[in-house]
Write a protein that binds this DNA or RNA. Structure first.
Lengths: 349, 349
DNA sequence: AGAAGAAATGAAAACGATAACAAAAAAATA
DNA sequence: TATTTTTTTGTTATCGTTTTCATTTCTTCT
């Protein structure tokens, strides 16, 4: 049996208002009545109807997390659970609930935006976006309007987001290779409809420039974020006129594919061709040899985004509206090391 | 600006009730008035307040998915996103929303059960359970009461669940090894607080028995589902008095760890020691050599559970209340093959 | 002790939808 | 045309809270 304030009020010999005050920890209730009410609450196992409360207060205490179709796998594998864990850790702290919105198709996606966001079911939204195409949805969100935080940098003004520094991360990876003595550093790109794909490519180019190496189209092959794509791209590079001595792949999956291609060619990783990945997904360390890669602070992206959103919902100001978290180069065994430069390099598990 | 039925009614020159009827596709509205109302709806960009509707109808159109702390990683990696994808694909079809409940601690877990489930915020629950300990929560759920479907077999009567056939899967894996000619088949177990851990162990033992091989404690080492645990367990086996010629690990992560240990010992996978994993996670195919493993139909578990729950919510009968989905042995390269038995074995990518 | 002020409590309205019932309009029948 | 039946529409109550405002009770001070 489910009870209401009315039941509690009757049992405690108080009014509905008083019961409500007790439930909401309003201090203007005499200690004695409070205990009487709490006793009744306990006795009946009463828990307020959050729907009714939401209707009256116009606050649902629910946050929507939107995951556009396709994002969860393409980029990196434990991305999705990790980011959700980060988000929930913060939301739980604030007694907020999480609505997971995962569209399986473009049309579903559209419905979500037209219906759900206006249904007052949600106090704010975290949008895990990553493609330039997501712009249309972001603009719609703004019109609702609903507090909103993106996960991933996005080239739009006046928007809240938290992302990781893809450009700098890529830069560090490539610089690492150059510091090891490599002059012919190849790149296996992701697709360029992804923001991260473009940024990582940028970082690659900037690193070359900084070290006076000329950008060479022959050293770049296009992948599609998958292992198979990485494998194909590496084959291209291996069969090209200029075979690179080191390759930076825009994510770990492709790096793993590249490793396979290199091995099949009878070459040795790190000795013949060094390789660096991006994201530090689990298989980066599973592969033989363990992959040097760029670690993305996925969990922190989740927590930060959630914290930002909570502030927005509470009408507080969000200090820097846009946050780019630093990445970290994780050095394992896929690049070996140049003895001359060894002082600069710390081998890490 | 957000509008209500009242606004639409005024603009369309109709009553609130009529507007409500149109929104709910009630057929008893004259075509002419219907179009007038829809015109007004469009003009104002009206969308019903789902909170108010939920209060009145006592249906929130929200389904809770509970993921107890720790489950998402221990078992197998893409488990979590894959199962969620399966669930959402069905829920979206029925216009149901998904509340993701992820507790970060035991105390949070407890709060969830005492508060959220009674808050009428949810019409039903999918509980991704896997430990015997989860029993307490299941029992609480029953008391609420709230339609509920478990993902994972659970040793309780009169409960709805969908799981995969861990026992048969393990059986098949071990039988495969035996068919290849192996007589000394080892087992790396997971922890036994997990239902799947016990079932897979059972399957191992049954397969031995069926083929007249005696169970031998010396051939069994305890892991903890992690790669590191698998590595340690394999080391134990390798240093034991009876070194197995084949090993079945209760999940892929441990299998990968075992592979590492075997390689370090200077032995060759499949030639010296064959190995089979469980789950067919992504790294099963990433490892060198690609792992023979048992595929768990994760996505289908999600869809089926969601379909069952939808039926329960609608008061329909759920035909078989408990479903065990079959697994599939994926044969790759970690076991090689016995020429004599080859006819039985199909090599697969 | 009585008045003024503060603290605690309660009655009634409101949030925005739907449901039950009643009434009006249209169609069918006599 | 009058009457019955059917279709369509509208009125009012309701879901379970919180909020506003009024009232009561308790303190404090002269």
């Amino acid at each position: 049996m489910l009870f209401t304030v009315k039941d509690v009020a009757r049992l405690a010999g108080a009014s509905k208002t008083t019961v409500s005050r007790v439930m909401n920890k309003n201090p203007k209730v005499k200690f004695e009545t409070k205990t009487r009410v709490l006793q009744a609450v306990k006795e009946l196992g009463y828990s307020p109807n959050s729907i009714a409360r939401a209707l009256r207060t116009k606050k649902s205490d629910v946050v929507g997390v939107i995951i556009p179709r396709g994002v969860e796998y393409v980029f990196s594998d434990p991305f999705f659970p990790e980011i959700i864990k980060g988000i929930t850790s913060v939301l739980n702290l604030h007694n907020l609930n999480l609505h997971l919105i995962m569209s399986n198709s473009e049309s579903e996606q559209r419905e979500i935006y037209s219906g759900l966001l206006r249904s007052r079911r949600i106090d704010g939204v975290i949008l895990i976006c990553s493609r330039f195409d997501d712009k249309q949805y972001i603009l719609k969100l703004r019109k609702v309007p609903l507090p909103c935080v993106l996960i991933s940098r996005f080239p739009l003004e006046k928007i809240n987001y938290v992302g990781c520094d893809n450009k700098q991360g890529a830069y560090n990876a490539v610089e690492h290779l150059i510091n090891l003595g490599h002059r012919r550093v190849g790149f296996i790109s992701g697709s360029f409809d992804f923001i991260g794909g473009v940024d990582r490519f940028e970082g690659y180019k900037i690193a070359l420039k900084k070290h006076n190496l000329e950008y060479d189209n022959e050293l770049v092959a296009k992948g599609d974020w998958t292992r198979e794509g990485g494998y194909q791209a590496m084959c291209e590079l291996l069969n090209g006129v200029k075979v690179p001595t080191a390759v930076f792949a825009a994510n770990d999956q492709m790096a793993v594919g590249a490793v396979k291609a290199i091995k099949e060619k009878g070459l040795q990783i790190s000795k013949d061709i060094a390789i660096v990945g991006f994201s530090d997904t689990q298989f980066a360390s599973y592969v033989e040899p363990p992959l040097t890669t760029v670690r993305e602070p996925t969990y922190e992206e989740g927590t930060l985004a959630a914290e930002m959103l909570v502030k927005l919902i509470n009408g507080q100001e969000v200090k820097p509206p846009q946050v780019i978290l630093p990445t970290k180069l994780i050095i394992r065994e896929s690049c070996g090391y140049n003895v001359k430069k060894m002082a600069k390099v710390v081998i890490k598990q």
